[in-house]
Nucleic acid binder design. Structure first.
Length: 213
DNA sequence: TTATAGATTGCCT
DNA sequence: GGCAATCTATAAT
């Protein structure tokens, strides 16, 4: 982890072309990139360490499986846009749309390794961290899709349909030159349909992936 | 109109 | 390990 908030602020967002591809390819290549939330001069950022691919209309576990609805229409729009949904009455989850317009592929963001804006993340999560947090405490910030969204202040009313590729977006994904990491593949978490497919991508050995320690 | 499951989390035993 | 919280999209009546 070599980034600081100054450099993150000036890196360009990943281009739209990055997201046009198959969600499996996008998911794999998102690992190691940095998800950045800008607000009012401050920023919160974390390295993407865990994602899941959802394959659109051919994937029974995907929200896009049954075709476009008011809820999921962003998935069928142009690539590189935020699809935010509310789940279990408590949590928001953040995805990015993939593939060319008209197709429903997407990638779910499941865990970040916090890099910057840690105090703001802790406030958003209603946590009190010691001045020198231990890794086990930092994990509580953004290890899990609901936690990640809460840490970055992501909600459907605020963020659904936002364009990740816009240079003025307050939600961006940037490449800070972090070297490619070893990728592990597992089945997706918390689903019942198509549960045997290995479509969960994580940085092997990274302590900030979701789940119990 | 009513019922139910859901891409989760945190607290309880 | 079990389960309640708490909303919504979708299925069933």
């Amino acid at each position: 982890m070599t980034s600081n908030s100054r450099s993150l602020d000036h890196l360009p967002p990943l281009p739209r072309a990055f997201y046009i591809r198959d969600p499996r390819r996008v998911a794999r290549e998102l690992l190691g990139k940095v998800l950045v939330r800008h607000d009012r001069g401050s920023l919160r950022a974390g390295r993407i360490v865990e994602v899941e691919a959802y394959l659109g209309r051919k994937d029974p576990a995907a929200h896009a499986f049954s075709g476009p609805t008011p809820r999921n229409q962003v998935l069928f729009g142009p690539p590189g846009h935020a699809y935010v949904y509310f789940i279990y009455g408590n949590h928001y989850c953040l995805n990015v749309s993939c593939e060319p317009e008209g197709r429903g592929g997407g990638v779910l963001f499941r865990a970040l390794e916090p890099i910057s804006g840690i105090e703001a993340m802790a406030r958003a999560r209603h946590l009190r961290l010691p001045s020198v947090p231990r890794p086990g405490e930092l994990r509580l910030l953004a290890s899990g899709p609901g936690r990640l969204a809460e840490a970055l202040g992501i909600t459907r009313p605020r963020d659904n349909a936002k364009d990740f590729a816009s240079p003025v977006a307050d939600l961006q994904i940037v490449d800070d030159g972090f070297p490619p990491a070893r990728v592990a593949l597992t089945p997706r978490v918390g689903i019942t349909k198509a549960a045997d497919h290995k479509l969960r991508y994580l940085i092997a050995g990274n302590p900030f992936v979701s789940g119990k320690r």
